[in-house]
């Protein structure tokens, strides 16, 4: 009877899904896939592409937009992530205790030894990604998530590990504060919140370049890494 019930609900769902798909197709078939829409003078993207290397010193245009031109928006985005993390903590503390009867199967030697070997490399790679956010694909969010994925691996292999929630919260708060502090430096020196006051520092394309962008991305990387690790550890439940 489960099957019949599902089919009974599925037919309108399929119809609505097809309707939405057709609407999207109808709306976007006119957009012109792969056409050069940014080349006209006066478009926002054109303005960014023409001036961002000179203005910010960043080689990566996406980073220049996310951290420099839309830096305030990114501060809000980081705040949303913090809110999700804090909200999860609040919900977890109100939940009934988890079922502890099921003992996990202990992992084999290969898994434990391999995890100990790979975890430092994953953290190193995540740090590389967020330190080089202004030069190569990636940035603070991506690097932070890579670090958290390494700690998720550790948590899966060693389920007894208790995440240091206080240390995670501390590094998260310090990273968030330094992001806001960098913004206030811009306000004090340049007169604009999050103004990239030392954008001329260094040569574009080198590690020391793009002014405050790498510093902001390092702060975001640490913050996202700590927050995501906390999220994943809370999801495991039990002691969280």
């Amino acid at each position: 009877m489960m099957e019949r019930y599902d089919i009974h609900r599925s037919i309108p769902a399929i119809l609505l899904a097809l309707l939405v798909a057709a609407t999207i197709f109808y709306a976007f078939v006119e957009v012109g896939f792969g056409e050069a829409k940014v080349d006209e003078e006066g478009s926002v993207s054109n303005r960014f592409i023409s001036n961002s290397t000179q203005e910010t010193g960043s080689s990566n245009f996406v980073t220049a937009v996310v951290v420099n031109y839309r830096g305030f928006d990114t501060l809000g985005e980081v705040t949303v992530l913090f809110l999700a993390s804090a909200g999860m903590g609040a919900i977890v503390s109100a939940l009934p205790a988890g079922d502890k009867r099921k003992r996990p199967i202990p992992p084999s030697l290969i898994l434990t030894a391999g995890t100990r070997l790979v975890l430092p490399l994953i953290i190193l790679f995540g740090s590389y990604v967020f330190v080089h956010g202004h030069l190569s694909p990636g940035g603070g969010f991506q690097g932070g998530v890579i670090i958290a994925s390494g700690l998720l691996l550790y948590l899966v292999i060693f389920p007894e590990w208790k995440a240091p929630h206080k240390a995670l919260a501390l590094s998260e708060s310090l990273a968030g504060l330094s992001f806001a502090g960098i913004g206030i430096i811009g306000l004090a020196v340049g007169g604009i919140f999050l103004d990239n006051v030392i954008s001329g520092l260094g040569e574009a394309g080198m590690l020391v370049s793009a002014g405050l962008i790498p510093l902001i991305y390092i702060a975001i990387g640490i913050k996202v890494g700590a927050e995501m690790t906390g999220l994943v550890a809370r999801m495991k439940g039990g002691d969280a």
Partner: peptide
């Protein structure tokens, strides 16, 4: 200009 794709949608999608 003329050599790279539009960076703005990518930045918005990151958000």
């Amino acid at each position: 200009i003329g050599e790279i794709v539009d960076p703005l949608p990518q930045a918005l999608v990151l958000t």
